[in-house]
């Protein structure tokens, strides 16, 4: 029972602070999962791969898989509810107020600074995930094959409108061929 409560509170907290949606929430999930010692970064990377292959929000999907891994289907439901409910509460309570004050200088100043730190956390997460998966900083300093895969994927994601699902599937086949 206490694990369920722990899962709920942890993901509720993540949901509450998850400004920016999508991959902006990954660094927060990483820090909380690490804090609870639920998973290592490599396991979390695989979970994000599953989350990214399914339709729907990457953060809620990741929460669902983490909950599933920790405590089966009830854990998955609790994690998914935990990360989604803050959205509902914040929108119901602050929605109308926000639309009224979105042009207010104070609101703009808050998001001006918040966006900068959020992007900082995502960059940090990318570095940490690369290091924890042995792509950089391992015994060879840089793993050539993995690093090439990172760079090619990055360029494709930034320069083309490639669907990440296809990229993940293609990388899976490349992985079978070269690793």
């Amino acid at each position: 029972m206490s694990l369920y409560i722990d899962i709920f509170i942890t993901f509720f907290k993540i949901g509450l602070i998850g400004f920016g949606g999508g991959y902006a929430i990954i660094p927060i999930i990483e820090s909380q999962v690490n804090l609870h010692q639920w998973l290592d970064v490599k396991q979390l990377t695989d979970i994000i791969a599953i989350a990214a292959m399914a339709p729907g929000p990457i953060a809620a999907n990741s929460a669902t898989v983490i909950g599933f891994k920790l405590a089966g289907i009830p854990g998955a439901a609790i994690a998914c509810a935990g990360i989604t409910l803050p959205s509902l509460l914040v929108i119901l309570i602050l929605g109308k107020l926000f639309i009224k004050y979105q042009e207010h200088a104070l609101v703009k100043a808050i998001f001006y600074g918040l966006r900068a730190t959020i992007i900082g956390t995502i960059v940090y997460a990318a570095i940490k995930f690369a290091a924890s998966n042995g792509i950089i900083g391992g015994s060879n300093l840089i793993d050539i094959k993995s690093t090439l895969l990172v760079l090619v994927s990055f360029v494709l994601l930034v320069k083309t409108k490639i669907n990440p699902v296809y990229l993940i599937i293609a990388a899976g086949f490349i992985g079978i061929l070269i690793f």
């Binding site: 695989d46 960059v123 899976g172």
Partner: peptide, 20 residues
């Protein structure tokens, strides 16, 4: 396959930062 996929996840995170 996962060894091939993990670098893509890193790229996905990095590209999210870049786009934002």
């Amino acid at each position: 396959a996962l060894n091939g996929i993990r670098p893509v996840i890193v790229a996905l995170i990095a590209s999210a930062a870049y786009k934002m």
